[in-house]
Nucleic acid binder design. Structure first.
Lengths: 191, 191
DNA sequence: CAAATAAAATGACCGTGGTCAATTATGGAG
DNA sequence: CTCCATAATTGACCACGGTCATTTTATTTG
C-alpha cells in the first residue's frame, strides 16, 4: 500500500504550472488553451488531466494563489477606520478579481464549494477574506448592533455585486470602489 | 433593401423553442444538447445558430420568459409589509432561479449585459425586478433614509448572495429564504 | 540484478459547441 | 410565369475540453 508521490510528479506539475503562467502572461487567462500549456510543458494532454481534474482546477489554483497573496497584503495593512478607507483598501483585491471577465467568472464559480471535500483554493480565499473583514468590521467606527460575521458577509455580497456590475454596460463608467462605497456606508453605518 | 422576416423563420424558431422545451422537461436545462434540439426540431445544426447566437442565447430566452412570468405574479401580488413577508414573496422567484445549478449560472452570466445593444431577456428581468423591489421598499415599514433605488439594489445583491450560497456545501442545509431574512432585516430596517 | 508491482505518462479518440461556403426556398419585379 | 436578389437552410468541418486503454518509467521484493 505505497502511496508516496514520486519527485517526477512534482516536476511535471511544476512544469505545467510554469507553462500556464507563461501563456497567461502573454495572452491572458481567458485565452489559455490546455493544448498550448501541454505543448510548452512538453507533456501529453492526458498528463495534464492526471494533475488537474479539469481546466478549471488549474485556474482555481493559479487565481487562488494570486488572491491569497493579495489577501496577505490586506491582512498586513492596518484595519481601515472609515468606509472610504475600507473601499480603498479593498480596491487592489477587486481589481485583481476583475482583471478579466473570464477570471471573475471562474472566481464566482468557485467561491462556494459544491461539496465539502471539494473546497478549492479560491473557496479558501473567501474564508480568509471573511476573517479579515470580520476583524475590520469589529471596530468602534462601525455599527455594533449586528455580529461581525453577518456584517462581513454583507460586505462580501456587496463586493461581488459591485464587481459583477463592472462588466455591465450600463454602469461600467463608474470605478469599482466608487460603486461599492454607498452600499457599505449604508450597510456598516446606519443612522 | 427588404428585411421582412419570412413566416418560415418564425415557424422554424418556434419549432426550435418547442423542441428545446420538450428536452428540458425531460432531462432538465443542464443536460440539453443542441444536437438533440435540432434533431427533434427536424432542422440542421447550422439553422440553430442562425436563430440563436449560441446555446446561451437560447437559455437566456427560455429562462428569461419563465422569470418574467414569475415577476408578473410578484408585481400583481400586494406589496409585502414586513421583511419576513418580502422574503416569503420572493421565494418562488428564488426557487425558480436555483432549480438547477446550471440555470443559476446562466442567470448570473446574463444578469448584466456586457454591451448596451446586447441586453437580453434575463438582463431585462433584473431591471423589472429592480422596479418591483423599489416599489416594495418605498413604504413606511422600511427605512427611509436611503433611496428606494439603492435599497432595491441591495436586496438584489443579497438575493444573489443567498442563492449562490445555496449551492455551497457548507450552508445548503438552510432553506434559501431563511438565509436571506437576516440580511434584509439589517438592510431594510436598521435601528 | 531480475522479476514483479505500482505509478506516471501517452496519444488516439470522443462529445459537444460553433463556423461557413455552398445550396435551396421565398417573394417581388417585369 | 420567369427571373433574380435575398433570406434561410444545410451539413461537413473545426476547436477545444476531456477520457481511457495501453505503454513507459520508477520502486520494491526476492
Amino acid at each position: 500500500m505505497k502511496e508516496a508521490i514520486q519527485p517526477r510528479t512534482l516536476k511535471t506539475r511544476a512544469r505545467l504550472i510554469d507553462a500556464a503562467r507563461q501563456v497567461i502572461s502573454e495572452t491572458g487567462y481567458g485565452a489559455l488553451r490546455v493544448e498550448e500549456v501541454v505543448q510548452r510543458a512538453g507533456v501529453a494532454k492526458g498528463t495534464f488531466f492526471a494533475h488537474f481534474r479539469d481546466k478549471d482546477a488549474l485556474m482555481d489554483h493559479l487565481i487562488g494563489v494570486r488572491i491569497d497573496a493579495c489577501l496577505d497584503d490586506l491582512a498586513a495593512a492596518p484595519a481601515p477606520a472609515t468606509v472610504a478607507d475600507m473601499v480603498a483598501t479593498l480596491d487592489p483585491l477587486m481589481q485583481l478579481m476583475t482583471c478579466e471577465r473570464y477570471v471573475f467568472d471562474v472566481i464566482v464559480r468557485h467561491s462556494g464549494a459544491a461539496a465539502i471535500e471539494e473546497i478549492g483554493p479560491i473557496a479558501m480565499t473567501f474564508h480568509k477574506l471573511q476573517h479579515v473583514l470580520e476583524n475590520w468590521v469589529d471596530s468602534a467606527s462601525f455599527r455594533r448592533d449586528a455580529s461581525p460575521q453577518i456584517l462581513a458577509e454583507g460586505v462580501q455580497a456587496f463586493m461581488v455585486n459591485a464587481m459583477a456590475l463592472n462588466f455591465c454596460a450600463l454602469s461600467n463608467t463608474t470605478p469599482l470602489s466608487q460603486r461599492l462605497e454607498p452600499y457599505l456606508s449604508l450597510w456598516l453605518k446606519p443612522d
